[in-house]
Each structure stands twice: as C-alpha cells, then as structure tokens.
Design a protein around this nucleic acid. Structure first.
Lengths: 148, 148
DNA sequence: ACATATTCGTTTGTGCACAAACAAGATAGG
DNA sequence: CCTATCTTGTTTGTGCACAAACGAATATGT
C-alpha cells in the first residue's frame, strides 16, 4: 500500500498533537483525585517511587522519572516543605543525598491506594485498549529517549 | 483471561507515566528542529492552524488547539512581538479579534515544510506503529476530553 | 600530591498549563 | 430601555519543563 508524503506529514501532526493533548487530559483527570492528597501529578510520581523503594538518591529519582534535576530540585523542596519526605546525607559523597518518606509521607500511601482505581474508572476504557496504548507509547519512548 | 486488581493499578501507572514521558520526548524532538524557525512547539501549532485557515478568532484557535485562553493569550502576544501574526478587530464584536499571519509569518511556512519530514526521520518508527498510536490516543482523548 | 576533568545538585531565566479573579462587551428578560 | 446574565479575553499566582551558568565535591591522570 503506497502512502503519499502528504499523508505522512498529516499523520505526524496528528500524532504529536494527539500525544500532547492526551497527556494533558489524563493528567487533568488525576488533578481532582490528587487534590485531596495535596499532591500534583509529578509530586505523586515522586512519592510513588519512594513508596516503592526508599531511600533513593536524588539522581536516582531523577533518572527513574525522567525528570531534569533542575525540575526535580524545587519539586523535592516543596515535598519537604509539605512534610512528606526528608533528605539524609549519603556516606562518602557530600554532593548528593538520599530521599525517604516521613511518617506522614508513609501515612499518605493509604489514601493514595484509592487513586489508580478512581482514574481507571474515570477513563472508562477497556483494558486491551490501555495495553495497546502502553505498548505503542513504549515504542515511542524507546525511539526518542535521549538516554542512549 | 483473568486480570488481578494489582495488574490494573500497575498498568494505570505505566500508561499515565508513559504518556507524559512520550509527550515530553516527542516535543523535545521538535525543539532543535523548530529552533531555527524561532518557534516553540505550541507556537508552531498556532502557526500551523493559521497557515491552514486564516483569519481565525482567538477563541477558535484556543478550541482547535485545546489551549486554555489564559495560556494562549501571552503566547499570541509573543507571536505578535516576533512579527509573525497580527490581530484584527471583528466587525460587530469588540470582545474578540481575528488572527492572521503577517507577510513574514507566511514566509516562514516555506521553512516549516521541512519540519515534519525531519521529525519523522528522527522518530524512525514504522508507519503502522504511528497509525496504531494515533488511534489509541484518539480513544484516550475521547474518553477524557472535558469538552463533552 | 596536584592540576585537570567530571559529576552532581542548585540557581536563574523563559515559556507553557491551569485556576481564580477580573473587566468589558454582548445578550436576554422584564 | 435597563438591569441581570453570559461571553470573551486578560491578569495574577503557582507549579512544571528545560537551557545555561554556576559552585562544590569527587575522580582521573601524571
């Protein structure tokens, strides 16, 4: 099946625009659900990482979440200020530090358990659609990841 | 095939995170390509809209690109300041205005023709993958679009 | 040991996303 | 009319994304 150059250009526009809109829309879906927890979506991702495994170094969190250190730095500061995490020195390297949830940070996990089901319900998409989407997104990320 | 609740929750995380990362990565792909044109990606989308059909009212552009007026307002101001577009009054409604590319805005279109092929090439993904992705993204947008 | 280079996080500046409050023009009801 | 309501874009404030410059600590090479 032959495909004209115009088709490709058109498709390209649609894919990139659709990607941006879908991303914003889904994050907007999280917003009212995360609001009672006092978290933004990026902050929620950091807490998820630390609930899964702590301590993590600053740089490890940045790499896991594909966040620029310049973005993560003030974000961490806000989570500290909210009393959800704290930083501890790393033995033998004064440049970096480890992050761990505080007591109230760990307590917040209980509330956070309700987040994913709420999002899934709001999305209302069949599971196979989500699986297909994840696979395509993974391909895009592999094709574009600046990390190698 | 049975699917546990944990799987669903896990999948949710993966989809939303992958969506955010893929969106940022693809926009980052555009960045060096758009840089010679002096455009950011959202600005490029506005120019695309106006190259396709002008004049367009402020509100029409906002709706087309799914941009909040509060986001579009300063963005338009920057495009005016770059001399790429200008606003014209609308007969019979003093609240709004129309946007049209200036002469140099129209001239920029020639350079912009090279953008999509460059992006496609950098992406290096087979077309059927892109088609599948677009279809899945469309489903997500339909499921989440706040505009009904 | 010491100079050089690299790693690591922070700071500053610009632009985008979004909520909330706002202001001015248009519309509808009485 | 003329007042209340709705539309439309702007402004302000917060947070995120990213580039560039920076400073401090560590690693490397000789």
């Amino acid at each position: 099946m032959t495909q004209s150059t115009e088709d490709l250009l058109e498709l390209d526009q649609q894919v990139c625009f659709a990607l941006a809109v879908a991303s914003r829309n889904v994050i907007a879906l999280y917003r009212p659900i995360l609001e009672p927890l006092g978290l933004t979506h990026p902050q929620y991702l950091v807490m998820l990482a630390l609930w899964g495994k702590a301590p993590l170094r600053f740089g490890e969190v940045a790499e896991l979440l594909r966040l620029d250190p310049a973005t993560l730095s003030p974000l961490v500061k806000r989570l500290e200020q909210s009393g959800l995490i704290e930083r501890h020195p790393v033995e033998g390297d004064e440049r970096t530090f480890e992050l761990v949830p505080t007591e109230s940070g760990r307590a917040l996990r209980e509330q956070a358990l309700g987040v994913p089901p709420a999002v899934i319900e709001q999305l209302g998409m069949p599971i196979d659609r989500l699986v297909a989407l994840r696979d395509e997104l993974t391909a895009v990320i592999d094709a574009t990841d600046p990390v190698k």
